[in-house]
């Protein structure tokens, strides 16, 4: 299986660097973005196997970012990640086509398994 390339969007820099480090050890290349706007910009120029997106960010929130990603890159699978478990926003996210909705703190192995499943669906794994 080829190496996965993942776009991680989260305004928590500590979380970004932790996940990036651990994913690297599993052969996943991580590009990080600290806002929805930045993520959309990156997606214009590069293809990713999967996007992991924090729901609550300053500026454009995760749900809006998801909406735009799906409108412009429908084949890109997005896993939502949130510190605030809320059934309404989760449901909206799924309806907008998120692959899944995970809750922080998330076990690394679970996150890893989930992005693999998502990448499998996007047909890029």
């Amino acid at each position: 299986m080829k190496n996965l390339h993942m776009l991680l969007v989260d305004d928590e820099t500590e979380f970004l660097s932790l996940v990036t480090r651990r994913m690297a050890r599993r052969g996943v290349e991580v590009t990080s973005a600290e806002s929805g706007e930045q993520a959309l910009e990156l997606l214009e120029n590069e293809e990713f196997d999967v996007v992991v997106l924090d729901v609550r960010m300053p500026g454009m929130d995760g749900i809006e970012t998801l909406r735009r990603i799906k409108a412009r890159h429908p084949g890109t699978e997005v896993v939502l990640l949130t510190g605030h478990a809320d059934t309404s926003s989760a449901y909206t996210g799924m309806q907008l086509g998120a692959f899944d909705y995970m809750i922080k703190p998330v076990a690394f192995d679970e996150l890893f398994a989930k992005i693999r499943d998502a990448a499998l669906v996007s047909g890029r794994a």
Binding site: A85, D86, T87, A90, Y91, M94, D100, Y101, I103
Partner: peptide, 14 residues
């Protein structure tokens, strides 16, 4: 409770 409810519902959605 919130986390488990969301987990169950979203897996159901899947």
């Amino acid at each position: 409770i919130r986390a488990l409810s969301v987990r169950g519902l979203m897996a159901g959605f899947q």
